[in-house]
Write a protein that binds this DNA or RNA. Structure first.
Lengths: 249, 249
DNA sequence: CGGAATGTTGAACCGTTTCAAACGGAGTGG
DNA sequence: CCACTCCGTTTGAAACGGTTCAACATTCCG
């Protein structure tokens, strides 16, 4: 089900092909890009250092999160990053970065120079179209997240995030996984959902109480997908994943 | 200060050039696109009808808003649209639309066929780069909005939106305007900020009470920009507007 | 083993919502 | 010109969802 290959850039190809058709030629030329690889421990900032300034960062394995910090020290997590995502496209096109990215789990990241990427795009403009498509999907996720935080109550917020993670954590467009290791603390869940870690805790317990999920440590099992999804108001279309499996919701 | 031209597509060129450099050739070829124009009254859905299905919609004048509706009837406004914005790029690249757009004021909209646009892009790939840049700026705004709704209290939320509107409503990259007609009802403000219209009302009054703003009907005057911006935690960089004026904040 | 980070629980508190009623202005028809 | 209606705004009082603070339990990790 997953494309078998240990080439780091294959993660990018896999991800792009979730949302668009990608030609063999485009794929081949992407895989020819020069890159430098780095490892990051959980909790560290996912950012290229020093001489890699004019580079794009690609998350190859592991999970990360995007966040912004308020002056008062409050933090809002604005996105979860999965393998194949380019972490700082914005910097390449806008020469300015707002927000930061950190590793939730141990991560492998790859740096590709803007120059190489621009040369590739000049030769194969379709690559830029793929990037645009990715940006639009990310925008779509961001807007749904906004709905979650703005208009859903705590139970629906937590449920919605659990549903999204079930779809995204294995990252190959298959139906939602039914059981997974939550990659974030309850405090991070709170920062993502606009809640307190205390209230996230109580909400998780209430979801367990009515049998929607089961929980062992950070291990989440979705016991009743239909119930959880309806409670969350979850409609997977906003993820814009070309359905390959047989997933109703 | 505004580019003087009554060609509808000039609004697009103006907007694109807020965030990127745009060559005279690209500009000229954009202006040659065939289009069809439509008017919409305040409150109406901004969407091309029937035979204009495979078209992109460009907002030429007026203000609109994007929103998503929950099953329970609750609504979250996820963006404000100003002239020059393409309303449904997503549909062109992802063949699927989530969310809707409505007119806040009377709007002029122009439709451009996907086919024409694709042909233009094939000839001038740089146009796609401009669209990508726009999408990234919109993503940036969407994330800041998420911070607003997730982690700011009611006063900061309202203040932040007022600051953003001061920057965007006249739409040509100049310093924030100090006085403007709020294009939305308090209920719409609430739907945008994840608040109740009742509480928006009280919050506006409290902003008036401490002298940050003045208000006459829907007319908003920012009396103390520094105060309002600091109260909101507003940092205009997320708008990614190439500063032309002399604006500190 | 010890210490730090994360998770859990209770009780009091507070920002925001809810509900309900009244007010104001704009537009319409008599 | 008045009466009427509609829509948005304003105000008050009560209720609620979520926060805060603080203490304790647990897990993780060196």
């Amino acid at each position: 089900m997953n494309t078998a290959s240990d080439h780091p850039l294959m993660s990018l190809v896999d991800r792009l092909s979730l949302h668009s058709a990608i030609s063999p030629d485009d794929c081949a030329s992407l895989l020819k890009l020069p890159f430098r690889s780095q490892q990051f421990e959980s909790g560290n900032a996912l950012a290229a250092q020093g001489e890699l300034r004019d580079h794009c960062s690609l998350l190859v394995s592991g999970i990360g999160y995007r966040y912004k910090t308020l002056s008062g020290g409050l933090r809002q997590i604005v996105g979860v990053c999965v393998p194949g995502e380019i972490l700082d496209l914005k910097q390449m096109y806008l020469h300015q970065l707002d927000g930061s990215v950190r590793a939730l789990t141990q991560c492998q990241m790859v740096s590709i120079s803007h120059l190489d990427l621009r040369q590739l795009i000049a030769k194969r403009p379709n690559i830029e179209k793929l990037f645009l498509t990715e940006a639009l999907v990310e925008l779509s996720r961001s807007r749904e997240w906004l709905v979650t935080v703005g208009r859903r109550n705590a139970r629906a917020r937590v449920a919605h995030l659990l549903c999204e993670l079930a779809f995204r954590l294995d990252g190959n467009g298959s139906p939602p996984i039914q059981s997974y290791l939550l990659p974030m603390t309850q405090e991070q869940l709170g920062d993502a959902l606009g809640l307190t870690s205390v209230h996230v805790n109580r909400t998780l317990k209430s979801l367990v109480a009515d049998g929607s999920i089961a929980r062992g440590g950070r291990w989440i099992t979705i016991l009743d997908w239909a119930n959880l999804a309806s409670l969350a108001g979850f409609d997977s279309r906003y993820l814009h994943v070309k359905q390959v499996g047989t997933c109703a919701v």
